[in-house]
Computed example of a mutant assay.
Amino acid sequence: SIVNVGSVGLFRYSRIFQRTGQQIPTKVACIRDRDLVPANTPDDMQGHLDCSGDMSAEEVAKHVAGLRTEDDGNVRTFVSDHWTLEYDLAAASWPLATLMHQAVRSAVASKTIWPTEERIAALDEQARQEVQQWKEDGRSLTDVAIDIYKPLRLNRASKPVAAQHAARVLLDTPIEDEDLPAYLVAAFDYLCMPEA
Rank of each mutant, 00 (worst) to 15 (best):
E130T: 13
S106E: 06
T112V: 14
D50C: 08
A186M: 13
V3H: 12
T69A: 10
E130I: 01
P25V: 05
T77K: 04
Y190I: 05
R105K: 13
G53P: 12
S106W: 04
Q23S: 12
E176R: 14
A145H: 04
P95N: 02
Q46L: 03
D50S: 13
A127E: 06
V185C: 09
T41I: 07
I31M: 09
L154M: 04
T116Y: 06
D33N: 08
D124F: 10
F17M: 03
T98D: 07
M55L: 10
M55I: 08
P174G: 13
V104D: 00
D44V: 07
P181C: 02
R168V: 01
L49G: 11
D44F: 07
K111E: 00
P38N: 05
A29I: 05
D143P: 09
S110A: 07
V75Q: 03
V104N: 00
C30Y: 06
A90M: 03
A29Q: 05
W134N: 05
I175A: 09
A90R: 00
G21M: 04
Q164S: 06
L184P: 04
L67R: 14
D35Y: 15
V131E: 08
F188W: 10
D35V: 03
A167S: 11
V28C: 07
V169K: 02
I16K: 12
D71A: 09
E125D: 10
D179L: 12
T142Q: 15
D54W: 08
P38F: 04
P174L: 09
P160R: 00
R76C: 06
Q102P: 10
R139Q: 14
S52I: 11
L67F: 05
R19L: 08
A109G: 07
E118C: 02
A166E: 03
R153T: 00
A122C: 07
I175L: 14
I31P: 10
Y183M: 05
L152Q: 10
S106T: 08
R76Y: 13
D50Y: 06
L123M: 04
E125I: 02
G21L: 05
A182Q: 12
R15L: 13
I148E: 10
Q22D: 13
L85T: 01
P160M: 03
Q23E: 09
A91G: 03
